[in-house]
Design a protein around this nucleic acid. Sequence first.
DNA 1: CGGCTACTTGAAGGGGTTCAAGCACTGTGG
DNA 2: CCACAGTGCTTGAACCCCTTCAAGTAGCCG
Lengths: 234, 234
Amino acid sequence: MTKVCEDCVVRDRSLCGTLDDAALTEMSRLGRRRKLAAGESLQFEGDDNILCANVLGGVLKLSSLTPSGDAQTVGLLYPADFIGRPYADTVDHDITALTEAEVCIFARAPFERMMAENIQLERQLLERTLSELERSRRWLLFLGRKSASARLAGLIIDIDRRMAQTGCGADLGIGQLIQLPLTRTEMADVLGLTIETVSREIGKLKDAGVIATEGRRGLRILKPAALKAIMDSE
Amino acid sequence: MTKVCEDCVVRDRSLCGTLDDAALTEMSRLGRRRKLAAGESLQFEGDDNILCANVLGGVLKLSSLTPSGDAQTVGLLYPADFIGRPYADTVDHDITALTEAEVCIFARAPFERMMAENIQLERQLLERTLSELERSRRWLLFLGRKSASARLAGLIIDIDRRMAQTGCGADLGIGQLIQLPLTRTEMADVLGLTIETVSREIGKLKDAGVIATEGRRGLRILKPAALKAIMDSE
DNA sequence: CGGCTACTTGAAGGGGTTCAAGCACTGTGG
DNA sequence: CCACAGTGCTTGAACCCCTTCAAGTAGCCG
């Protein structure tokens, strides 16, 4: 018999990583893999909250729409990240795949049962949620106080770090090619800017030799220190 | 013998609310009350993370300083709110009393022990953290996409709601006098604006008859629906 | 190649900041 | 009780960063 979740690429980095074999077997019975095309949504704001999931591959976004129609992305989800909000009745944000993606879905009720029975699962989720809260608060500082160039630099650095962590081909090394998981529009939605401003700021970073671009999605960080300095500036 | 934590004003609304008498007795041995003067800080960003606490009274802020020196408030803490980040080594934000305040402090290590032994405590904290994450993400949308007037309206409505919940004298009724826990400068730090803009926007709301002010801290909401409409606008 | 979408670039306009006074609460001492 | 700081708040005017509106260009797929 093949070992449970044996082929799961995020098995030891995801929420499930702490489970023993018995619990993992149970989880594997509850989980169901689903592939998402780029642009496809897993759920919409206001939906009944019926699912939790682990991200297996790809990048997704958490976003809200203002009444007047423009979007704000409030979080990005990478492989091994957890999706969902246990104990809530409705869903607070849209979740949409930015790239082709794959998730491992659990119905919320049985997932909550598993959490009750495996307290290390709850503990793990608590730690992750606290981290996520911290991430979100750091973005608050960016959106509240920083200029367009500092925000962009921050996003690029964040993407680079997350891509490196999740082994998506990027690396902290200078000049490594990163495939951006976001279009310019999607970057603007994260940064609270317009697509034109994002484009212009990328242009400035290129002119300054801080980054280089390759096609629409390709990006190289040529001067990490300079990029970090821009992020830390106003 | 007097009952444990009997005189605690937030006993049933705080994290401790779910504990049975035995656990509460244990908690009461670990907790230590401390009063804070307005402006006094409980901890600073970068400090060793040694404490958790419940807010008993007053209002506190969570804030960060940008390298260039101006502040961004990333969260407000009201009575019954929880302070601290279990499992982390260092502290991510300054915590400062905005008004005279009182907190019930626990050393982090024994608090974590209590969480391990009383899983409903961990569960409670998880739910609170998930809510707080949600609050923080909603603010992201405000800072990313909304105008100064919408942000201010949002803050006033939030304060009104929180003050009503915590029984600090406010009420959702029209014309009730609210004592703002923040100065204009502190409001600006929450909203990602300057003090001048905050002042001007308050002036506009007054001119429109949406609110009335009384001294520096006093505020009445005269047209809640109009205020809400402004919050929901761009 | 043609067509589509994503992206870039330009110019004008506006919301918020910045800089600079002036005003009004609040407490303190005479 | 009133003068008088002192701090917090308001108001005004110029400026600037980002947006808005409008073309124009480049990557990509049939």
